[in-house]
């Protein structure tokens, strides 16, 4: 399981979990489920174009995810129209399908990009993954207080002198980078699970924001390592374990909290 040619996969997966744990915490806190769902979709045609033109995937992913951020910010400015947004996302997916079919690697690339293919990671993917896997956590930590305060109430952050527009844009940017990094590993459809399952569970379990952030990252790491180990052991796809374990984590956390709430707790006085 830790043979050299798989080691790259483990390293990249670990970095993916780090970035997703940090970004996912604020996805849950800022209730940006939609963005976490939309940005991987927006990144998908970028990866497909990279396959078509023979460029390293990460560049196509990052470029398309950044375009996605621009699209989201533009949609946010006007009144959001659900139908238009949904159609734009579906059109991006269809564009990705076109690129893949023109590349001649339609069949296997569709599966890899939608559901992930962690052990296809090569040594050339390590450097950009390290860069993003370090940059996203550091940036989230540096922006921790404004991100937190504007999640609670944007006007409170504005009164204190924070520029909420910039904070929003920063968050979407970090989310896009994390999504671009995670997409080849978990697939476009399961980035959401990796980001929100562990973070959602952590937010349900702990009251302190810093402790919850730490737990979110820890659970994301545990999730992706378990998914990879199980995938290696069974030969089943890692995406299946990612989606299933994320749901199990979140539901278990909810049930635990409900059970605890049912008993009177002394800390409530």
């Amino acid at each position: 399981m830790f043979v050299p040619y798989l080691l790259d996969g483990w390293i990249v997966a670990t970095l993916v979990a780090l970035a997703s744990g940090f970004a996912g915490f604020f996805v849950v806190l800022r209730r940006e489920s939609f963005a976490a769902h939309a940005l991987p979709m927006a990144a998908f045609p970028g990866a497909a174009a990279a396959v078509l033109f023979g460029v390293a995937q990460i560049y196509g992913l990052v470029a398309a995810a950044l375009l996605g951020v621009g699209l989201l910010l533009w949609l946010k400015r006007g009144q959001r129209n659900d139908a238009a947004t949904a159609l734009a996302l579906v059109a991006l997916l269809a564009l990705g399908a076109l690129f893949l079919s023109l590349s001649g690697r339609y069949a296997d690339a569709v599966y890899a990009l939608l559901f992930g293919q962690v052990f296809a990671v090569g040594p050339g993917d390590i450097a950009p993954a390290v860069a993003l896997g370090v940059l996203v956590p550091l940036a989230v930590l540096a922006g921790f207080r404004p991100l937190l305060l504007s999640a609670l109430a944007p006007e409170l952050a504005s009164v204190r002198g924070a520029n909420c527009g910039w904070v929003d844009a920063l968050f979407l940017l970090l989310l896009a980078l994390a999504a671009a990094l995670a997409l080849p590993v978990t697939g476009a459809l399961l980035v959401f699970s990796l980001m929100t399952g562990p973070a959602g569970a952590a937010c349900v379990l702990l009251r302190s924001p810093k402790a919850a952030l730490a737990l979110s990252v820890g659970l994301a790491l545990a999730l992706i390592w378990s998914a990879l180990a199980l995938s290696y052991a069974t030969g089943w796809p890692a995406g299946f374990f990612t989606g299933a374990l994320a749901a199990v984590l979140y539901l278990a956390a909810r049930m635990w909290r409900r059970a605890r709430r049912a008993r009177p707790s002394p800390g409530w006085a």
Binding site: L141, A142, G143, F144, R145, P146, L148, L149, L152, L156, A157, R160, G161, A162, S208, P209
Partner: peptide
């Protein structure tokens, strides 16, 4: 935490 954010909730940095 909410009260503490009243001290420096706008500030970037660790």
């Amino acid at each position: 935490d909410l009260v503490a954010l009243g001290l420096d909730g706008q500030r970037f940095g660790f």
